[in-house]
Simulated assay, not measured.
Amino acid sequence: MSDSPLNLHASAVVVQGRGLLIKGASGAGKSGLALSMMGLGATLISDDRTILIDDGKGVVLSTPETIAGLIEARGIGLLQAENVAHARLFAVVDLDHNERDRLPQQREFPILGYSVPLLFKVSSPYFPAGLVQFLKGGRRA
């Protein structure tokens, strides 16, 4: 168990208790993906900055208090949003890498001594809906 939390430049949402960390370079679309997923039923954990803590059972995602309940919508401004204080990390999506395979291999992302599923960006309008369903039901092995 790690005593020091990680503070990452990332966004995070949750569906049915399963947290998704959205990482990528500045301008990669982290907030946009989070907003799209929120429109499909996900709840915001954090936008732009996410705190990761090892609680001895896994990684917990949370938001810095100063930005709780806020998400940036480019061209509109900072929006207030329903949010949850924390959720267990279920998976990571990396917007800096594009998925090329129709049925991709299962990848893992090591973080704070744990390993969680890693997904790459899919350039398709159904990508946010696919992620929401992935958080609801997982993926067949």
Rank of each mutant, 00 (worst) to 15 (best):
S2M: 13
S4V: 14
L6H: 07
N7G: 05
N7W: 10
H9N: 13
A10Y: 07
V13G: 04
V13Y: 01
V15L: 08
V15R: 00
V15M: 08
G17F: 09
L20K: 02
L20G: 00
I22M: 02
I22Q: 00
I22H: 00
G24D: 12
S26L: 11
S26C: 09
G27K: 00
A28W: 02
G29F: 03
A34V: 12
L35E: 05
L35F: 07
L35Y: 06
M37Q: 04
M37Y: 08
M38D: 00
M38Y: 04
L40P: 03
G41D: 06
G41T: 04
A42N: 07
L44N: 03
T50P: 03
L52I: 03
I53M: 13
D54A: 08
D55P: 06
D55K: 08
G56A: 09
G58V: 01
P64W: 11
E65T: 07
I67P: 01
A68R: 03
L70R: 09
L70H: 09
I71P: 04
E72W: 12
R74C: 10
I76H: 13
G77H: 12
Q80K: 15
Q80E: 15
N83T: 13
A85R: 15
H86R: 15
A87M: 00
A87S: 15
R88K: 13
L89K: 02
V93A: 05
D96T: 14
H97G: 00
E99P: 03
E99K: 01
R100G: 09
D101N: 11
D101V: 11
L103P: 02
Q105G: 07
Q106Y: 11
Q106C: 05
E108G: 14
F109N: 05
L112Q: 08
L112G: 05
G113K: 06
S115T: 14
V116T: 01
V116C: 09
V122Y: 06
Q133C: 07
L135G: 01
G138A: 13
G138R: 11
G138W: 12
R139E: 15
R140L: 15
A141T: 11
A141E: 13
